[in-house]
Nucleic acid binder design. Sequence first.
DNA 1: CTCGACCGGTCGA
DNA 2: TTCGACCGGTCGA
Lengths: 296, 296
Amino acid sequence: MSVQISVTMNQTDVMVDLPGVTEVAFEAARQMMTRSLERSSVKNRDAVKDTFITLLKACPEANPSDLWHHIVYRQYLEILPAHRVQNPDQSWKRASGDALEVAIAEIHEPLFAENNIRIQVLVGRPKKIAALMAMGISGVVGSDKLDVALYIDDTDEIFGGVHVKASLAERISDDVPCSREMMQNGFFSPLWTLDVKSFPPPHPDPLVNRGELGSPTAPSEKRGYVEKHGSFDHLFSANARSMPSSGTTPSGKRVMRLNLATQPNLFAQEVIARAKLFKEQGRAAAPPPPVTPSDR
Amino acid sequence: MSVQISVTMNQTDVMVDLPGVTEVAFEAARQMMTRSLERSSVKNRDAVKDTFITLLKACPEANPSDLWHHIVYRQYLEILPAHRVQNPDQSWKRASGDALEVAIAEIHEPLFAENNIRIQVLVGRPKKIAALMAMGISGVVGSDKLDVALYIDDTDEIFGGVHVKASLAERISDDVPCSREMMQNGFFSPLWTLDVKSFPPPHPDPLVNRGELGSPTAPSEKRGYVEKHGSFDHLFSANARSMPSSGTTPSGKRVMRLNLATQPNLFAQEVIARAKLFKEQGRAAAPPPPVTPSDR
DNA sequence: CTCGACCGGTCGA
DNA sequence: TTCGACCGGTCGA
């Protein structure tokens, strides 16, 4: 039960192994993507979101980050040109970022509803501004840097928000100021990522999607944002190759590896716990964010 | 004395007018780009840098940002594939950013030398760390966000640094934390940009490179970073379509439009003035950065 | 070899 | 219509 795909890059063919992916699931994804993109009324982000969720359900053993990077991404680039005139690479950047936010909301909606939590994608500036105002950080420079909001019950009482990133690059720093302010004001501020990153040939492990977090013993800059500086209420990575934090971290904040197949996953557990704490104790319940001397 | 180019995008042909550009200059640029890229020993960024500087000298009346966006950029995409196997769009992103930093240093080196100022591109992490340490902001999160350093004479005494961006997008926020810290510590921290931004058809003014600063009366988010929040020691734009600040700004910091043909240009004047002030009074000479209530 | 920052067409609200 | 944020192959040090 494993599909191999061939990717041509820099005039080199690379075979990529996708454990946990069946031919049937692979073809179902292609069909979902094609059916979606051929209808001009379907938003590009929804084509991506629906294809990803189809794959997640069909391949519970697979690495979600690989499903995204090697199947959804590459099928989008392949299929889009038949239906849209736009540049497929740039279209992917624009559409896939939104798609991931919507997918995360959709995946968790039922479970969160059972726990009297509402998850909402903050689409459009007014919604973002409103959410940030509710947390007392409106008007701040770079303020509309929050993707997804978390509310208590059906109220507008916000207890936190999720920073969503398909890949980290240097762009992780964009989210830090907003996240720190949220934490300082007592709101829950996790980072949810697929941590997608692979290198093309002639890299020694071409197209192996290792992500950018390094290991606890050889931490990358990005791992430091969480483990050392504690700039988020944990980093949840849905890349099976991400190495979780080990032992205690300087900031107390951790890299957590998500297994989306076992529900409630670690992210969902944390959201539910923090909602409960918020209902019992309000904003005061949140621990103050750690500050290291070399931190901003 | 004006060249028109035809750009095909989204299956539409768009004619772009380039006032101040002669056929001779246009062909000289193409030759410089070709000659550079066909030699595998020439770094991609140097091909870009040399072509840009060739054009700047040959076309003093032209809009520098247009030279970059419509000639250097498009010629690079056209010519690179004949000599390199890599993806030309991604290659441009990687190489052009570095090229602009090197170009700015090269353009100003002679004038700055006359004024006992040294400008240095901070290439490689160790150099960046050293420069930031010298300004007392080492180890800070997102700290290696400085591109170019400015020193007094031939010493290692740093009095500031330049944040360089070809285009702004949301990425301008990356530079804010470092810049604010620099200013707070008494160092000179301007932003130098080409402010490149055009929209493809079917936009009403397809491919017109208007930039992203809006106007003083209808300020964009990016203009607010400077005029309202004062996050940089002025924003110097080499896009002739950038509208400079008018009257006084809330922060005292301004958008300035550069005319590179008249030397010393506004950027050079400010660098020289700040170097003089620094020599006379040291870091204390720098005015404290303005802080507005809605600022971080 | 490793691993960081570079940028622009897109597409919605 | 305007104008914001989305992301990944590259290529050096």
